[in-house]
Amino acid sequence: MSTLLDVRNLVTRFHTQDGVVKAVNGASFTVAKGETIAIVGESGCGKSVTSLSILRLIAQPQGKIVSGEALLDGTDLLKLSTEEMRKIRGARISMIFQEPMSSLNPVLTIGRQMTEQLELHRHMGQQEALAEAINLLKLVGIPQAERRVKDYPHHFSGGMRQRVMIAMAISCKPQLVIADEPTTAVDVTIQSQLLELIRGITDEMGMSLILITHNLGVVARYARRVYVMYAGTVVEHGPALSVYHHPLHPYTSGLLASVPRLDEPRKGRLAPIEGQPPDMMCPPVGCPFQPRCAYALPKCLTDRPELQEMAPGHFTACWVAFSGETLWQKT
């Protein structure tokens, strides 16, 4: 499989009244053509900022991409002019957000919002664009699409709005769809409807998909490869099966141990990760996970570990793992 998107050492910061938030500190990942990857992590780990940085949608002027590369088929997105970047958004990379209501314009009909994009990126005429919009709405399972295309966003339920977002995201047949917590705002039965829909469409149209989520179950169900982010950097990545069954980073294994599972006998007590995620205004020196890590070595306090391949395709950034210790691994 050939690489579609190659993000290298992305660093993004936010300048706020209280200080500089180091939101992303050297995150790297790749997506192959037609592949689905997941970026998993808790709030504040930088997973959303990473995706917004790639699309250069970081809030200005507080937010700033300090360094790094984001190569889409070899072109560095971070070096493009504003005009060139605008042509990429929606046409080659599109995004599905968590809260569809805030990403849809409340005073325009769904049809108008969809045809606008089609006319702009696919150079369609008005009639043709409207017909295509109806087709797309049918594709994402909106009943009576011919009628609903004239409705405004507030006429739709949360799940239906997210379907509209999906239709808009795929309308220009992008190579890459980024879904940022697409189902966090909806119920589980709607979550499976939407995720099945996203998976079906991206598979069929050969699109790559980046699924950003905090839900370990969703990752397990939909992604082949997974990146685990913590404190603005990738701490572990690899094939989902390998990461879930043989986590190499204590954060990953801690995360997996802290969620109750429906399919396993009920445990008496859960094993939480103690402490809190770091304040990204003053992240810890050395390994970012070190203050919460039960296995930290003296070296962890001073030197930041870089990602190393420990098993085929399975990378981690952990001094304890490098030293050959596997004490937290599941048996």
């Binding site: 339920s157 799940g159 979550q191 879930y244 599972r261 429906l262």
Partner: peptide, 27 residues
């Protein structure tokens, strides 16, 4: 039954074999 099957389990090996009941429509 549908609710339980909609909950993804954090284990790719288990998920691969699972049959998901996707409910139609919304509440």
């Amino acid at each position: 039954q549908a609710l339980l099957s909609a909950v993804p389990i954090p284990d790719p090996a288990v998920e691969e074999k699972r049959k998901v009941i996707v409910l139609k429509g919304e509440v």
